[in-house]
Design a protein around this nucleic acid. Structure first.
Lengths: 225, 225
DNA sequence: GGCAGAATATGATATATGTCATATAAATGA
DNA sequence: TCATTTATATGACATATATCATATTCTGCC
Protein backbone atom coordinates (compact mmCIF):
# COMPACT_ATOMS: atom_id res chain seq x y z
CA UNK A 1 0.00 0.00 0.00
CA UNK A 2 1.54 3.31 -1.06
CA UNK A 3 1.73 6.20 1.35
CA UNK A 4 -0.73 9.05 1.01
CA UNK A 5 1.85 11.39 2.48
CA UNK A 6 3.93 11.10 -0.64
CA UNK A 7 1.06 11.31 -3.09
CA UNK A 8 1.33 14.52 -5.06
CA UNK A 9 -2.29 14.77 -6.19
CA UNK A 10 -3.44 14.92 -2.59
CA UNK A 11 -2.16 18.50 -2.58
CA UNK A 12 -4.76 19.47 -5.17
CA UNK A 13 -7.82 18.25 -3.33
CA UNK A 14 -9.54 18.89 -0.02
CA UNK A 15 -7.24 16.26 1.44
CA UNK A 16 -4.42 18.78 1.56
CA UNK A 17 -5.83 19.86 4.94
CA UNK A 18 -4.97 16.53 6.53
CA UNK A 19 -2.01 16.33 8.90
CA UNK A 20 0.64 13.62 9.06
CA UNK A 21 -1.26 11.37 11.46
CA UNK A 22 -4.43 11.63 9.46
CA UNK A 23 -2.54 10.78 6.28
CA UNK A 24 -1.07 7.69 7.88
CA UNK A 25 -4.54 6.58 8.95
CA UNK A 26 -5.80 7.34 5.45
CA UNK A 27 -3.09 5.25 3.82
CA UNK A 28 -4.07 2.31 6.01
CA UNK A 29 -7.71 2.22 5.06
CA UNK A 30 -7.67 3.30 1.42
CA UNK A 31 -7.65 0.83 -1.45
CA UNK A 32 -5.99 1.57 -4.78
CA UNK A 33 -7.54 0.55 -8.06
CA UNK A 34 -6.54 0.60 -11.69
CA UNK A 35 -9.40 1.35 -14.01
CA UNK A 36 -9.32 0.73 -17.74
CA UNK A 37 -10.64 3.20 -20.28
CA UNK A 38 -14.37 2.68 -20.68
CA UNK A 39 -14.74 0.94 -17.33
CA UNK A 40 -17.54 2.05 -15.01
CA UNK A 41 -16.42 3.34 -11.61
CA UNK A 42 -19.94 3.61 -10.28
CA UNK A 43 -23.41 3.87 -11.70
CA UNK A 44 -26.39 6.12 -11.01
CA UNK A 45 -28.40 4.70 -8.14
CA UNK A 46 -25.57 2.70 -6.63
CA UNK A 47 -24.55 2.98 -3.00
CA UNK A 48 -20.90 3.90 -3.01
CA UNK A 49 -20.18 4.40 0.69
CA UNK A 50 -17.04 6.38 0.28
CA UNK A 51 -15.20 8.61 -2.11
CA UNK A 52 -12.65 8.13 -4.84
CA UNK A 53 -9.51 10.19 -5.09
CA UNK A 54 -8.37 10.42 -8.71
CA UNK A 55 -4.63 9.91 -8.90
CA UNK A 56 -4.40 9.76 -12.67
CA UNK A 57 -6.64 9.84 -15.72
CA UNK A 58 -9.98 11.46 -16.51
CA UNK A 59 -13.54 10.25 -16.16
CA UNK A 60 -16.93 11.56 -17.16
CA UNK A 61 -19.85 11.99 -14.80
CA UNK A 62 -23.05 11.27 -16.68
CA UNK A 63 -26.74 11.34 -15.95
CA UNK A 64 -29.31 9.38 -17.89
CA UNK A 65 -32.19 11.50 -19.17
CA UNK A 66 -35.69 9.98 -19.40
CA UNK A 67 -35.36 10.19 -23.20
CA UNK A 68 -32.67 7.53 -22.96
CA UNK A 69 -29.72 9.77 -23.75
CA UNK A 70 -26.77 10.18 -21.45
CA UNK A 71 -25.72 13.68 -20.57
CA UNK A 72 -22.17 14.45 -19.44
CA UNK A 73 -22.48 16.67 -16.38
CA UNK A 74 -18.80 17.08 -15.60
CA UNK A 75 -15.34 15.77 -16.37
CA UNK A 76 -13.23 14.82 -13.38
CA UNK A 77 -9.49 14.66 -13.54
CA UNK A 78 -6.39 13.96 -11.49
CA UNK A 79 -6.42 15.58 -8.07
CA UNK A 80 -10.17 15.69 -7.73
CA UNK A 81 -12.47 13.71 -5.46
CA UNK A 82 -15.42 11.71 -6.69
CA UNK A 83 -18.64 10.89 -4.88
CA UNK A 84 -18.50 13.54 -2.17
CA UNK A 85 -22.02 14.78 -2.77
CA UNK A 86 -23.79 11.51 -2.34
CA UNK A 87 -21.66 10.56 0.63
CA UNK A 88 -22.58 13.75 2.45
CA UNK A 89 -26.25 13.54 1.45
CA UNK A 90 -26.19 9.90 2.50
CA UNK A 91 -27.89 8.91 -0.72
CA UNK A 92 -27.16 6.70 -3.71
CA UNK A 93 -25.05 8.50 -6.32
CA UNK A 94 -27.06 10.56 -8.79
CA UNK A 95 -24.46 10.32 -11.53
CA UNK A 96 -22.48 7.56 -13.20
CA UNK A 97 -18.70 7.73 -13.49
CA UNK A 98 -16.96 6.18 -16.50
CA UNK A 99 -13.24 6.32 -17.27
CA UNK A 100 -12.30 8.19 -20.44
CA UNK A 101 -8.70 7.03 -20.12
CA UNK A 102 -6.91 4.45 -18.03
CA UNK A 103 -7.11 5.68 -14.46
CA UNK A 104 -5.55 5.24 -11.06
CA UNK A 105 -7.92 5.91 -8.20
CA UNK A 106 -7.98 5.33 -4.46
CA UNK A 107 -11.15 4.47 -2.63
CA UNK A 108 -11.58 5.95 0.84
CA UNK A 109 -14.39 4.50 2.96
CA UNK A 110 -17.07 6.81 4.28
CA UNK A 111 -16.32 6.15 7.94
CA UNK A 112 -12.82 7.51 7.52
CA UNK A 113 -13.95 10.70 5.80
CA UNK A 114 -16.68 11.30 8.35
CA UNK A 115 -14.03 11.13 11.05
CA UNK A 116 -12.04 13.85 9.33
CA UNK A 117 -15.17 15.97 9.13
CA UNK A 118 -15.55 15.78 12.88
CA UNK A 119 -12.00 16.56 13.77
CA UNK A 120 -10.57 18.68 11.01
CA UNK A 121 -12.46 21.87 10.31
CA UNK A 122 -10.19 22.94 7.51
CA UNK A 123 -10.89 19.70 5.70
CA UNK A 124 -14.66 20.21 6.07
CA UNK A 125 -14.28 23.73 4.79
CA UNK A 126 -12.29 22.55 1.78
CA UNK A 127 -14.92 20.00 0.88
CA UNK A 128 -17.65 22.60 1.29
CA UNK A 129 -15.80 25.01 -0.96
CA UNK A 130 -15.34 22.36 -3.61
CA UNK A 131 -19.03 21.53 -3.60
CA UNK A 132 -19.93 25.20 -3.67
CA UNK A 133 -17.73 25.56 -6.72
CA UNK A 134 -19.49 22.62 -8.34
CA UNK A 135 -22.86 24.22 -7.56
CA UNK A 136 -21.85 27.53 -9.10
CA UNK A 137 -20.64 25.72 -12.18
CA UNK A 138 -23.80 23.63 -12.39
CA UNK A 139 -26.01 26.72 -12.17
CA UNK A 140 -24.01 28.31 -14.92
CA UNK A 141 -24.25 25.21 -17.11
CA UNK A 142 -27.99 25.05 -16.49
CA UNK A 143 -28.36 28.57 -17.85
CA UNK A 144 -26.06 27.75 -20.77
CA UNK A 145 -28.19 24.78 -21.72
CA UNK A 146 -31.37 26.80 -21.43
CA UNK A 147 -30.27 29.98 -23.18
CA UNK A 148 -27.37 29.34 -25.53
CA UNK A 149 -27.44 27.85 -28.99
CA UNK A 150 -25.74 24.56 -29.74
CA UNK A 151 -23.13 26.43 -31.76
CA UNK A 152 -22.26 28.65 -28.80
CA UNK A 153 -22.09 25.68 -26.46
CA UNK A 154 -19.82 23.81 -28.85
CA UNK A 155 -17.43 26.76 -29.08
CA UNK A 156 -17.44 27.14 -25.32
CA UNK A 157 -16.85 23.45 -24.73
CA UNK A 158 -13.94 23.27 -27.16
CA UNK A 159 -12.27 26.19 -25.40
CA UNK A 160 -12.95 24.60 -22.04
CA UNK A 161 -11.42 21.31 -23.12
CA UNK A 162 -8.25 22.98 -24.30
CA UNK A 163 -8.01 25.19 -21.20
CA UNK A 164 -8.55 22.34 -18.80
CA UNK A 165 -6.78 19.42 -20.42
CA UNK A 166 -4.29 21.14 -22.69
CA UNK A 167 -3.02 20.16 -26.12
CA UNK A 168 -0.64 17.64 -27.67
CA UNK A 169 2.62 18.57 -29.39
CA UNK A 170 0.68 18.85 -32.67
CA UNK A 171 -1.63 21.37 -30.93
CA UNK A 172 -4.64 19.06 -31.03
CA UNK A 173 -6.81 18.69 -27.94
CA UNK A 174 -5.19 16.32 -25.48
CA UNK A 175 -8.44 14.86 -24.22
CA UNK A 176 -10.00 12.39 -26.64
CA UNK A 177 -13.78 12.50 -26.71
CA UNK A 178 -15.87 10.75 -29.32
CA UNK A 179 -18.28 12.93 -31.28
CA UNK A 180 -20.99 11.20 -29.32
CA UNK A 181 -19.45 12.22 -26.01
CA UNK A 182 -18.87 15.77 -27.17
CA UNK A 183 -22.52 15.91 -28.22
CA UNK A 184 -23.66 14.69 -24.85
CA UNK A 185 -21.56 17.34 -23.14
CA UNK A 186 -23.13 20.16 -25.09
CA UNK A 187 -26.57 18.57 -25.08
CA UNK A 188 -27.32 17.91 -28.72
CA UNK A 189 -27.66 15.08 -31.22
CA UNK A 190 -24.44 13.44 -32.39
CA UNK A 191 -25.17 14.37 -36.00
CA UNK A 192 -25.67 18.02 -35.10
CA UNK A 193 -22.39 18.03 -33.24
CA UNK A 194 -20.55 16.48 -36.18
CA UNK A 195 -22.16 18.89 -38.59
CA UNK A 196 -21.18 21.92 -36.53
CA UNK A 197 -17.63 20.66 -36.14
CA UNK A 198 -17.60 20.37 -39.92
CA UNK A 199 -18.85 23.96 -40.22
CA UNK A 200 -16.24 25.21 -37.77
CA UNK A 201 -13.64 23.38 -39.81
CA UNK A 202 -14.76 25.02 -43.05
CA UNK A 203 -14.70 28.42 -41.34
CA UNK A 204 -11.12 27.84 -40.23
CA UNK A 205 -12.02 27.95 -36.54
CA UNK A 206 -10.78 24.45 -35.96
CA UNK A 207 -9.03 21.71 -37.89
CA UNK A 208 -10.18 18.11 -38.03
CA UNK A 209 -7.66 15.34 -38.68
CA UNK A 210 -9.22 11.96 -38.08
CA UNK A 211 -10.68 12.30 -34.61
CA UNK A 212 -8.15 14.92 -33.64
CA UNK A 213 -9.50 18.41 -33.12
CA UNK A 214 -7.19 21.40 -33.23
CA UNK A 215 -8.34 24.88 -32.27
CA UNK A 216 -7.14 27.28 -34.94
CA UNK A 217 -8.82 30.59 -34.15
CA UNK A 218 -9.29 30.97 -30.43
CA UNK A 219 -10.19 34.64 -30.60
CA UNK A 220 -13.03 33.96 -33.00
CA UNK A 221 -14.25 31.01 -30.94
CA UNK A 222 -14.31 33.20 -27.85
CA UNK A 223 -16.30 35.83 -29.69
CA UNK A 224 -18.97 33.25 -30.47
CA UNK A 225 -19.83 32.52 -26.85
CA UNK B 1 -35.35 42.65 18.02
CA UNK B 2 -37.36 39.43 17.94
CA UNK B 3 -35.92 36.29 19.41
CA UNK B 4 -34.61 33.62 17.07
CA UNK B 5 -35.44 31.01 19.68
CA UNK B 6 -39.12 31.53 19.05
CA UNK B 7 -38.89 31.75 15.28
CA UNK B 8 -40.64 28.77 13.76
CA UNK B 9 -38.98 28.83 10.35
CA UNK B 10 -35.60 28.32 11.97
CA UNK B 11 -36.65 24.74 12.52
CA UNK B 12 -36.75 24.17 8.76
CA UNK B 13 -33.24 25.33 7.97
CA UNK B 14 -29.71 24.37 8.92
CA UNK B 15 -30.12 26.73 11.88
CA UNK B 16 -32.10 24.05 13.71
CA UNK B 17 -28.76 22.67 14.90
CA UNK B 18 -28.04 25.78 16.98
CA UNK B 19 -28.38 25.57 20.75
CA UNK B 20 -29.97 28.12 23.06
CA UNK B 21 -26.85 30.17 23.61
CA UNK B 22 -26.09 30.30 19.93
CA UNK B 23 -29.63 31.41 19.18
CA UNK B 24 -29.37 34.24 21.68
CA UNK B 25 -26.13 35.38 20.04
CA UNK B 26 -27.80 35.08 16.66
CA UNK B 27 -30.76 37.22 17.72
CA UNK B 28 -28.38 39.93 18.82
CA UNK B 29 -26.53 40.27 15.58
CA UNK B 30 -29.22 39.62 12.98
CA UNK B 31 -31.18 42.39 11.31
CA UNK B 32 -34.76 41.94 10.13
CA UNK B 33 -36.00 43.38 6.86
CA UNK B 34 -39.32 43.70 5.09
CA UNK B 35 -39.00 43.34 1.35
CA UNK B 36 -41.71 44.37 -1.08
CA UNK B 37 -42.73 42.26 -4.05
CA UNK B 38 -40.40 43.02 -6.94
CA UNK B 39 -37.65 44.37 -4.71
CA UNK B 40 -34.11 43.15 -5.25
CA UNK B 41 -32.50 41.44 -2.26
CA UNK B 42 -29.11 41.19 -3.89
CA UNK B 43 -27.74 41.26 -7.38
CA UNK B 44 -25.29 39.09 -9.30
CA UNK B 45 -21.76 40.28 -8.63
CA UNK B 46 -22.54 41.97 -5.33
CA UNK B 47 -20.66 41.23 -2.13
CA UNK B 48 -23.23 40.12 0.37
CA UNK B 49 -21.09 39.19 3.38
CA UNK B 50 -23.66 37.12 5.14
CA UNK B 51 -26.77 35.09 4.56
CA UNK B 52 -30.49 35.76 4.56
CA UNK B 53 -32.94 33.60 6.43
CA UNK B 54 -36.35 33.71 4.73
CA UNK B 55 -39.06 34.06 7.36
CA UNK B 56 -41.92 34.63 4.94
CA UNK B 57 -42.56 35.00 1.23
CA UNK B 58 -40.89 33.63 -1.90
CA UNK B 59 -38.10 34.95 -4.07
CA UNK B 60 -36.53 33.92 -7.34
CA UNK B 61 -32.82 33.36 -7.88
CA UNK B 62 -31.91 34.43 -11.38
CA UNK B 63 -28.83 34.45 -13.55
CA UNK B 64 -28.33 36.74 -16.49
CA UNK B 65 -27.35 34.92 -19.65
CA UNK B 66 -24.99 36.59 -22.15
CA UNK B 67 -27.95 36.83 -24.55
CA UNK B 68 -29.53 39.29 -22.17
CA UNK B 69 -32.26 37.02 -20.86
CA UNK B 70 -32.69 36.23 -17.20
CA UNK B 71 -32.97 32.60 -16.23
CA UNK B 72 -34.65 31.54 -13.00
CA UNK B 73 -32.36 29.01 -11.37
CA UNK B 74 -34.37 28.34 -8.23
CA UNK B 75 -37.27 29.59 -6.14
CA UNK B 76 -36.54 30.08 -2.45
CA UNK B 77 -39.24 30.08 0.16
CA UNK B 78 -39.90 30.42 3.84
CA UNK B 79 -37.50 28.43 6.01
CA UNK B 80 -34.65 28.47 3.53
CA UNK B 81 -31.33 30.26 3.65
CA UNK B 82 -30.06 32.53 0.91
CA UNK B 83 -26.48 33.31 -0.05
CA UNK B 84 -24.77 30.36 1.59
CA UNK B 85 -22.82 29.36 -1.47
CA UNK B 86 -21.12 32.66 -2.08
CA UNK B 87 -20.43 33.16 1.60
CA UNK B 88 -18.63 29.83 1.82
CA UNK B 89 -16.78 30.33 -1.47
CA UNK B 90 -15.89 33.81 -0.31
CA UNK B 91 -16.98 35.24 -3.62
CA UNK B 92 -19.54 37.74 -4.91
CA UNK B 93 -22.95 36.15 -5.38
CA UNK B 94 -23.42 34.46 -8.76
CA UNK B 95 -27.19 34.89 -8.75
CA UNK B 96 -29.64 37.72 -8.16
CA UNK B 97 -32.48 37.40 -5.65
CA UNK B 98 -35.77 39.20 -6.31
CA UNK B 99 -38.91 38.96 -4.19
CA UNK B 100 -41.94 37.41 -5.90
CA UNK B 101 -44.15 38.37 -2.96
CA UNK B 102 -43.76 40.60 0.04
CA UNK B 103 -41.12 39.01 2.22
CA UNK B 104 -39.74 38.98 5.71
CA UNK B 105 -36.07 38.10 5.90
CA UNK B 106 -33.33 38.28 8.50
CA UNK B 107 -29.77 39.08 7.57
CA UNK B 108 -27.04 37.25 9.47
CA UNK B 109 -23.49 38.56 9.07
CA UNK B 110 -20.81 36.24 7.81
CA UNK B 111 -18.65 36.46 10.95
CA UNK B 112 -21.46 34.99 13.01
CA UNK B 113 -22.07 32.07 10.66
CA UNK B 114 -18.38 31.31 10.37
CA UNK B 115 -18.26 31.06 14.16
CA UNK B 116 -21.01 28.45 14.10
CA UNK B 117 -19.07 26.52 11.47
CA UNK B 118 -16.11 26.32 13.81
CA UNK B 119 -17.97 25.27 16.88
CA UNK B 120 -21.05 23.40 15.78
CA UNK B 121 -20.40 20.40 13.61
CA UNK B 122 -24.04 19.55 13.20
CA UNK B 123 -24.69 23.00 11.78
CA UNK B 124 -21.83 22.63 9.28
CA UNK B 125 -23.18 19.26 8.30
CA UNK B 126 -26.68 20.68 7.77
CA UNK B 127 -25.36 23.43 5.55
CA UNK B 128 -23.30 20.94 3.61
CA UNK B 129 -26.30 18.71 3.09
CA UNK B 130 -28.41 21.60 1.89
CA UNK B 131 -25.81 22.61 -0.64
CA UNK B 132 -25.40 19.01 -1.75
CA UNK B 133 -29.16 18.90 -2.31
CA UNK B 134 -28.94 22.07 -4.37
CA UNK B 135 -26.12 20.56 -6.41
CA UNK B 136 -28.08 17.40 -7.12
CA UNK B 137 -31.06 19.46 -8.16
CA UNK B 138 -28.91 21.73 -10.34
CA UNK B 139 -27.36 18.73 -12.11
CA UNK B 140 -30.80 17.37 -12.75
CA UNK B 141 -32.05 20.70 -14.08
CA UNK B 142 -29.01 20.97 -16.32
CA UNK B 143 -29.88 17.65 -17.91
CA UNK B 144 -33.54 18.67 -18.18
CA UNK B 145 -32.61 21.83 -20.03
CA UNK B 146 -30.28 19.94 -22.33
CA UNK B 147 -32.44 16.93 -23.09
CA UNK B 148 -36.11 17.66 -22.57
CA UNK B 149 -38.48 19.54 -24.85
CA UNK B 150 -40.04 22.82 -23.78
CA UNK B 151 -43.40 21.07 -23.50
CA UNK B 152 -42.00 18.50 -21.09
CA UNK B 153 -40.30 21.17 -19.03
CA UNK B 154 -43.50 23.19 -18.83
CA UNK B 155 -45.48 20.18 -17.60
CA UNK B 156 -42.80 19.37 -15.07
CA UNK B 157 -42.60 22.95 -13.83
CA UNK B 158 -46.35 23.27 -13.39
CA UNK B 159 -46.39 20.10 -11.31
CA UNK B 160 -43.44 21.32 -9.29
CA UNK B 161 -45.12 24.65 -8.57
CA UNK B 162 -48.25 22.97 -7.31
CA UNK B 163 -46.30 20.42 -5.24
CA UNK B 164 -44.07 23.00 -3.66
CA UNK B 165 -46.32 26.01 -3.19
CA UNK B 166 -49.78 24.44 -3.13
CA UNK B 167 -53.05 25.75 -4.49
CA UNK B 168 -55.70 28.31 -3.56
CA UNK B 169 -59.27 27.41 -2.53
CA UNK B 170 -60.25 27.61 -6.20
CA UNK B 171 -57.52 25.02 -6.94
CA UNK B 172 -55.39 27.48 -8.92
CA UNK B 173 -51.64 27.59 -8.31
CA UNK B 174 -50.89 29.58 -5.19
CA UNK B 175 -47.66 31.02 -6.49
CA UNK B 176 -48.19 33.80 -9.01
CA UNK B 177 -45.62 33.88 -11.76
CA UNK B 178 -45.93 36.01 -14.85
CA UNK B 179 -45.75 34.17 -18.16
CA UNK B 180 -42.39 35.80 -18.57
CA UNK B 181 -41.15 34.35 -15.31
CA UNK B 182 -42.56 30.93 -16.09
CA UNK B 183 -40.79 31.08 -19.44
CA UNK B 184 -37.51 31.98 -17.81
CA UNK B 185 -37.87 29.05 -15.42
CA UNK B 186 -38.32 26.54 -18.19
CA UNK B 187 -35.85 28.27 -20.48
CA UNK B 188 -37.89 29.35 -23.45
CA UNK B 189 -39.31 32.46 -25.12
CA UNK B 190 -42.30 34.09 -23.42
CA UNK B 191 -44.43 33.61 -26.53
CA UNK B 192 -43.61 29.90 -26.69
CA UNK B 193 -44.56 29.54 -23.05
CA UNK B 194 -47.89 31.34 -23.58
CA UNK B 195 -48.60 29.29 -26.67
CA UNK B 196 -47.96 26.00 -24.89
CA UNK B 197 -50.11 27.04 -21.94
CA UNK B 198 -52.81 27.74 -24.48
CA UNK B 199 -52.31 24.29 -25.99
CA UNK B 200 -52.44 22.64 -22.56
CA UNK B 201 -55.63 24.57 -21.91
CA UNK B 202 -57.24 23.35 -25.13
CA UNK B 203 -56.22 19.80 -24.28
CA UNK B 204 -57.89 20.10 -20.88
CA UNK B 205 -54.63 19.60 -19.01
CA UNK B 206 -54.91 22.97 -17.32
CA UNK B 207 -57.39 25.82 -17.10
CA UNK B 208 -56.51 29.48 -17.61
CA UNK B 209 -58.59 32.17 -15.95
CA UNK B 210 -56.93 35.53 -16.24
CA UNK B 211 -53.42 34.88 -14.97
CA UNK B 212 -54.60 32.04 -12.77
CA UNK B 213 -53.47 28.58 -13.77
CA UNK B 214 -55.31 25.50 -12.53
CA UNK B 215 -54.00 22.00 -13.09
CA UNK B 216 -56.86 19.85 -14.33
CA UNK B 217 -55.28 16.57 -15.35
CA UNK B 218 -52.30 15.78 -13.16
CA UNK B 219 -51.99 12.19 -14.34
CA UNK B 220 -51.69 13.27 -17.95
CA UNK B 221 -49.22 16.03 -17.08
CA UNK B 222 -47.07 13.51 -15.25
CA UNK B 223 -47.16 11.19 -18.24
CA UNK B 224 -45.71 13.97 -20.39
CA UNK B 225 -42.49 14.30 -18.45
C1' DG C 1 -4.37 -8.40 -43.76
C1' DG C 2 -8.90 -8.29 -44.20
C1' DC C 3 -13.44 -8.21 -42.21
C1' DA C 4 -17.18 -6.80 -38.91
C1' DG C 5 -18.73 -3.37 -36.32
C1' DA C 6 -18.26 1.12 -34.77
C1' DA C 7 -17.46 6.03 -35.48
C1' DT C 8 -17.64 9.83 -38.52
C1' DA C 9 -19.70 12.37 -42.20
C1' DT C 10 -23.28 14.39 -45.06
C1' DG C 11 -27.81 14.90 -47.36
C1' DA C 12 -32.87 15.29 -47.13
C1' DT C 13 -36.56 16.32 -44.49
C1' DA C 14 -39.54 17.10 -40.40
C1' DT C 15 -40.35 19.60 -36.36
C1' DA C 16 -39.77 22.48 -32.43
C1' DT C 17 -38.88 26.76 -31.10
C1' DG C 18 -37.64 31.65 -31.73
C1' DT C 19 -38.75 36.11 -33.68
C1' DC C 20 -41.48 39.80 -35.23
C1' DA C 21 -45.90 41.85 -35.72
C1' DT C 22 -50.13 43.00 -33.91
C1' DA C 23 -54.30 42.59 -31.13
C1' DT C 24 -56.53 42.43 -26.79
C1' DA C 25 -56.78 42.46 -21.86
C1' DA C 26 -55.19 43.88 -17.43
C1' DA C 27 -52.84 46.88 -14.28
C1' DT C 28 -51.06 51.19 -12.85
C1' DG C 29 -50.84 55.90 -11.91
C1' DA C 30 -51.94 60.92 -12.63
C1' DT D 1 -61.78 57.84 -14.47
C1' DC D 2 -59.23 57.65 -18.23
C1' DA D 3 -54.79 57.19 -20.35
C1' DT D 4 -50.55 54.90 -20.60
C1' DT D 5 -47.97 51.17 -19.85
C1' DT D 6 -47.44 46.30 -19.21
C1' DA D 7 -48.94 41.49 -19.65
C1' DT D 8 -51.23 38.10 -22.32
C1' DA D 9 -52.53 36.14 -26.61
C1' DT D 10 -52.22 34.68 -31.42
C1' DG D 11 -50.71 34.65 -36.28
C1' DA D 12 -47.06 34.39 -39.83
C1' DC D 13 -42.73 33.25 -40.69
C1' DA D 14 -37.68 32.13 -40.09
C1' DT D 15 -34.42 29.14 -38.32
C1' DA D 16 -32.10 25.88 -35.43
C1' DT D 17 -32.01 21.40 -34.41
C1' DA D 18 -33.56 16.52 -34.53
C1' DT D 19 -34.35 12.54 -37.16
C1' DC D 20 -33.75 9.19 -40.68
C1' DA D 21 -31.10 7.46 -44.39
C1' DT D 22 -26.87 6.35 -46.38
C1' DA D 23 -21.98 6.80 -47.40
C1' DT D 24 -17.36 6.67 -45.88
C1' DT D 25 -13.72 6.01 -42.83
C1' DC D 26 -11.65 4.09 -38.89
C1' DT D 27 -10.49 0.33 -35.44
C1' DG D 28 -10.11 -3.81 -33.11
C1' DC D 29 -9.54 -8.33 -33.75
C1' DC D 30 -9.08 -13.19 -35.48
Amino acid sequence: MSKCEQCIVREFSSLKALNKDELVKLAECKTSRLIKKGEIIFEEGENVNGIFCVKDGVCKLTKLSPNGKDHIVKLVTKGELLGQRSMISDEPVNLSAVALEDMQVCFIPKSEIMGFFDKNNQFSMNVMKTICGDLKEADSQMVNMAQKTVKERLAETLLYLQDTFGKNEDDSLKIQLTRDELASMIGTATESCIRLLSDFNKLGLIELKGKKITLKNIAQLKKMI
